[in-house]
């Protein structure tokens, strides 16, 4: 009985406040695209697991995709990798083949 009461004391639907930074959207890796001027685009990779060395990943990305990129630190979303050009599919394949990340963990956004 006491167990049940314990359960009741926890309201699963209670307002948790701003859920923006809780768990970083259920641990998804988001790959997004942004348009720049002209026909140029920018790919951002957000939500990479913390045990990944982003600096090294960036290096590999840059080398493999022949593009430039940077590591941006966002106060809310952690470190985000930015790459030049539309590298979404390439990033996904590299993450799944080399990084051992399940495809379901990755969300590709954009058109």
């Amino acid at each position: 009985m006491s167990d049940i009461q314990n359960l009741q004391s926890y309201d699963p639907f209670a307002d948790l406040g701003d859920s923006k930074d809780t768990g970083d959207q259920q641990g998804y890796i988001h790959i997004r695209i942004q348009q720049r001027n002209g026909r140029k685009t920018l790919t951002t990779i957000q939500g990479l697991p913390s045990n990944f060395d982003k600096k090294r990943m960036l290096k590999i990305f840059k080398k493999d995709f022949a593009c430039n990129g940077t590591l941006v630190e966002d106060e809310e979303l952690g470190s985000v990798i930015q790459l030049q050009g539309d590298q979404r599919v390439k990033v996904l394949t590299l993450l799944t083949t080399e990084g051992g990340i399940d495809k379901k963990q990755v969300k590709i956004h954009g058109f």
């Binding site: 942004q34 951002t44 956004h109």
Partner: peptide, 12 residues
């Protein structure tokens, strides 16, 4: 369903 979040926006 999850709320819509725009996520990280790079400066363009």
């Amino acid at each position: 369903v999850s709320a819509i979040k725009s996520g990280f926006q790079a400066q363009t």
